[in-house]
């Protein structure tokens, strides 16, 4: 297959799980490896791990910043309109206006309400987006600086990048179902939900499944760490008529490969085949 696939063949696949540790990154990384020309995008900006496996080269880095207020104390008359307006309590007035950067939601409200035009906005770096290459797979990773509050601006930048890509994109989403995940789900064509074989796993699966159905996205489930015993997540899928794309057995070989930071589909023919099979089951949505 040519790597210069047509744009119509582009599918954005979001990989999700209710909690961390289910194997979401394992699935995303390996799928990106076996789909020719695929792009891997790591939106788990608080704990990006995909790059540890891909070890991408030819890196291009883009710094991501937000706009936070800066007070011109000569113009400020101490009217405190900005303090009263700020819904996030990021400003205080004690003889001068104090700005608490890490609480600021960069809404720009204070600059608008200031009657003296004493507030301007300055850039505050919150992280970066790094694009690189790993054996022909494009790797996009977002990194949120430690201490910065919200990774949403970084995820939005990655989403922009994803839109420009010409090939299938595998999006490794943050865990949970908070705002950061919704950004990723909203812009996807298909969602893969990764679940563990416990009742906690099925309960967390229920949460992400509800999120995916809220946005009316087609989806399928990959059951990970299957040990041959009962699997409440599988029962959940059957009960709710959700397609099970694959069942990945618990395998110490796989956890060793993974633990060493290697990609199973690259070092093991067995796993290459397993993930090729999974890739074929994903519908071409567009």
């Amino acid at each position: 297959m040519s790597i210069f696939k047509k744009k119509e063949n582009k599918t954005i696949i979001a990989v999700l799980s209710g909690k961390g540790g289910t194997g979401k990154t394992l699935v995303s990384v390996n799928l990106a490896c076996v789909i020719p020309g695929a792009v891997y995008a790591d939106c788990d900006v608080e704990e990006p791990n995909g790059h540890l496996f891909f070890k991408p080269i030819n890196l291009k880095t883009k710094e991501i910043g937000i706009l936070i207020p800066s007070i011109n104390e000569e113009k400020c008359t101490g009217c405190t309109k900005c303090v009263e307006f700020c819904k996030f309590n990021a400003l205080a007035y004690v003889g001068r206006v104090m700005v608490f950067e890490e609480i600021c939601h960069y809404c720009g409200g204070c600059t608008i309400v200031c009657p003296e035009k004493a507030i301007t906005e300055v850039n505050l770096n919150i992280g970066k987006v790094v694009i690189g290459d790993s054996e022909g797979t494009r790797i996009i990773s977002g990194f949120l600086n430690v201490g910065s509050v919200s990774g949403v601006p970084i995820i939005k930048d990655i989403q922009k990048q994803i839109k420009e890509e010409e090939h299938t994109v595998i999006v490794d989403c943050p865990p949970g179902s908070a705002c950061a995940v919704m950004e990723s789900v909203q812009s996807s064509d298909y969602c893969i939900l990764v679940a563990e074989p416990t009742i906690f796993g099925s309960h967390n699966l229920d949460m992400v499944y509800k999120l995916v159905t809220l946005f009316k996205k087609p989806c399928g489930v990959i059951l990970n760490k299957c040990d041959g015993n009962e699997n409440p997540s599988k029962e959940y899928c059957i009960r709710n008529n959700i397609e099970i794309i694959a069942e990945i057995p618990y395998d110490s070989e796989l956890s060793d490969i993974n633990g060493n930071g290697e990609i199973a589909a690259r070092v093991s023919q067995k796993y290459k085949d397993i993930f090729m099979n999974i890739a074929e089951k994903i519908p071409k949505v567009k």
Binding site: K87, F88, H105, C107, G108, G109, I112, V113, C179, M182
Partner: peptide, 13 residues
């Protein structure tokens, strides 16, 4: 509602 952060800038303008 999922994207709204509740800053109320829109209400103001």
């Amino acid at each position: 509602p999922f994207s709204c952060e509740g800053c109320s800038v829109c209400e103001f303008v």
